[in-house]
Structure formats: C-alpha cells, structure tokens
Design a protein around this nucleic acid. Sequence first.
DNA 1: TAGCGATTGTTATATTATAACATTTATGGT
DNA 2: ACCATAAATGTTATAATATAACAATCGCTA
Lengths: 166, 166
Amino acid sequence: MASKKNHKRDWAGSAESHDHRICIVDALDKAAELCSQRGARLTQIRRRVLELIWSSHRPIGAYSLLKVLKEERANAAPPTVYRALDFLLEQGLVHRIQSQNAFIGCADPNHQHNGMFLICTDCGNAVELEETKIDRLLKSSASSRGFVIESRTVEAAGLCPDCQIN
Amino acid sequence: MASKKNHKRDWAGSAESHDHRICIVDALDKAAELCSQRGARLTQIRRRVLELIWSSHRPIGAYSLLKVLKEERANAAPPTVYRALDFLLEQGLVHRIQSQNAFIGCADPNHQHNGMFLICTDCGNAVELEETKIDRLLKSSASSRGFVIESRTVEAAGLCPDCQIN
DNA sequence: TAGCGATTGTTATATTATAACATTTATGGT
DNA sequence: ACCATAAATGTTATAATATAACAATCGCTA
Ligand SMILES: [Zn+2]
Ligand SMILES: [Zn+2]
Ligand SMILES: [Zn+2]
Ligand SMILES: [Zn+2]
C-alpha cells in the first residue's frame, strides 16, 4: 500500500494545498487492507461510495452520493447508499457529521474511534482532530455524575484560515 | 419569578429524583423574564412549545411536539413548530440535539452558549454540562490550526447511573 | 385608526432515512 | 462442479425531518 503523509498543509483539502489524489489512493488502500484483515467485504459499491466520500474533504450527504452513483449504476436507490454507508461506518472508514447529516472519510481508520471535527462554514472543508485530552475531560466530567460514555459527537463550526482572509 | 435550585439530584429527570414541576415553572418564568428584557415576544405558541419541551428532560422531536400541539390547536402544522423552535433557539431557551434531531430546554439561558450534553441511551434523559475546560481545549486546538470556532456541538451518549443498575 | 412589521395560517414540497420483501451473488462443504 | 446457505443487492414503498412560498391576521405605534 501507499500511505505515509504526502505533505504538510495548513488546512484541509483546498486543491492548492496538497495533492488530493494521494489522499484518495491512501484511503482506498488502507480500507482494502483493513477489510481484508477483518474478513469484511469491501465490495464494488462500498468501495465506490468510499471513493466518492473521499472525493473531497467536505462532508457529503447520502443523496449527493446517490446522485453520482445513479449515473454509473442505473438501479442505485437510497438503500444502496445507506447500506454502503452503514458498512463503512461499522468498519470505521467514515464518520457521520451529525450537524450536517453528512459523511466524511476517517483520517485514521486503524483504530476505532468517534471523530472530532473542525468544519469551515465557508468552504465546507473539515479536518479531523485527535484530542485525547478532550475525551479524557469529557469522560471525567461524565464520571463525576456517574455517567458512562459509550460514544460522542464533537463538531466545531467556524472559519478555516483560508476563509478568514475575506 | 421563582428560580433557585429546588434540590440536589444525581441525574436528570426521573420522576423519583425531583419535583419536575418546579423545573417547568422555573424555565417558563426565566424565559418570560429574558424575553421581556430583550423585547422578544414569547407568544402563546412559543411559550407552549417551550413548555412541551420542558415536559421532560428527554430531547423531543419536532413532530412529537406537533402531535401534541395539534390536539390543542387544530391548525398547527410543521411550520408552526419549526418557527417556534427557531425563536426558542435564537433566544437560547432551547438547544438542538444534533445526534437525535431533537430539542431540549436550556439549563441556563441567561448567557448564550452552545449546549454540551450527556444523553442516556436507555432512559433518554439528558443533562447539560458546563465544562469551560473542554471549550478552552477545543478553542486552542482549533487555534493551533488557524481555525476560529463560531459554534460547536458536544454530545456524549451512554448510560446514566440509574440505567447502569440493570 | 391607518399603516407596517411581525406572527401565524395554509399548502406544497424538499430532504433524509428506513421497512419489507424479492433476487442475485459469493462462499464453503460435498 | 453442485448445492445449500448467508450475504449483498435490487426494488418498491413509505416514514421522518425540514423548508419554501404566499396569504391572512395580529399588535404596535404614528
Ligand atoms: Zn486531500
Ligand atoms: Zn476518524
Ligand atoms: Zn426536572
Ligand atoms: Zn444551555
């Protein structure tokens, strides 16, 4: 497989900032590898949906995915997409962005986790954070109330550096 | 107005744990006061929707609200509810729970903020946290990437103390 | 009380997601 | 290779959530 960070970049996925083709190839390679290891079947549809999700760093909705799929596969219907999404979510290959009812590729599918995102309200790009401190704080805050966290959503909306220039 | 915490409780709103009528009265009193201060009009519909939202500590969906409203106001329709919700959200009197497409009363509407919640997957009750540390961490993490946060969603799902007993 | 903006009524439709059952495809044991 | 089985996909219908657009009414104030 390819892998290894292909560059540094300030922000998510503006075409200028990095060679996004590498993001896509890496994501698909890693997905294939993980599914293979797990005996999970990354079928054509599932792989294609993952590829479409990775077509940008912007969360994409199920029906946007469906629109594209339909051009390639006349009988694609909502369940086609939602089943693929269910699979990809189960495998930790994508995350759901709750504040947008949309989906984005996971930056690090090797270990299962809930995503944590900064999402630009202007360009739509999202970057995944890994802030273990936030999870620890949240866990301890819950714990002090006797609450046990099983999953969580953390999504911050605002302006990315590129979009603050305006 | 009434106000002042009416009791201590381990967790959210189980009927046994507290006199919930006081929660409702306090919430409505505070809403009236805030709207009055701001020159915002807490109309009958808006007040009633707020009251329905406060009927429990469980997030409630727009169409559940609508179902009740319709019994009292034959011509209630989706816009009736969504407009009231828009108003209540704007005034910071309720929060939207993104992971459930549902709404819950704000525990402290005096200062504008995004909510932060622990939500029990078993009983459905939710409690609002105020963890300034988490916001500070999130802000600084964003800041290190040049990102400026304008709003955020933090929702943790899991088991409340009551529901762990099973 | 006339005018004006805010609120509510009304109808229609957009968007997101799932249910239910039929058919096809992949896989493992013989 | 052949069959039994489970998994995946096809197909149709519908549920659940949310908004658009325009009309009618209300409430304030000039
Ligand atoms: Zn990229
Ligand atoms: Zn991830
Ligand atoms: Zn209560
Ligand atoms: Zn609040």
